[in-house]
Amino acid sequence: MKRTVPIIITALGGFVLIIAYFIPRTQGWGETAAIWFDVLASIAFILGGGNLLKIHLKKISDQNSGWGYSAITITAFLFTLFVGLGKIGVNPNIQYPDFAWSGSYRTIGSPFWWLYEYAFKPLTATMFAMLAFYVASAAFRAFRAKNIEAILLLGTAFIILLGRTFAGVLLTSWLPDWLVGLKLENLTVTIMKVFNTAGNRAIMIGIALGIASTSLKVLLGVDRTYLGGGED
């Protein structure tokens, strides 16, 4: 029973979405199924929040290693939730001046805006910027001309790296007009449009068929491992 009901729901949802694509009468059903998932996912935020509190409060109470980070996490979570949900420091909407909570929670100058502007924004930007450092380190360590394929990849990487900047224009500006296709900036476009597109299409076709086959296995209940196995 524990396995059968989810499989029935999965199969129903999946086949409705497939049928809705071909039968005009059922087109609205697909949208409804999509909205149901949104409703479920929204409720899951509460589940996530509850689990976050449970795990970190337990860490703090057990004084596990790194419990200080848990304390910071809980404090930041509760404070952000409070100023966001409470719309602290938010001005009323001009259409509804009588209602203090009618304004946007993102009002400039409100505590929530401050948190976003001076904590969230720089922190996430920092994490993303770290990619530049990791790419450099990975390039130094992993890009080796071990065989013909690797040499081709390295050559392509050089062309793209140069062709995507002014260095490419500068290095091959001397080429005559009849060799314009070999200018690095044009070669970059050709590689992206022809070789990259061809390779990507091959990978995408494989992935698409893999997705179709996996989805079908899930819908038919052939693959139940995500539910914890085949036993009912």
Partner: peptide, 11 residues
Amino acid sequence: HLLMILLIITG
């Protein structure tokens, strides 16, 4: 980008 090329060549 130039640094990346340099690093790859050095490696």
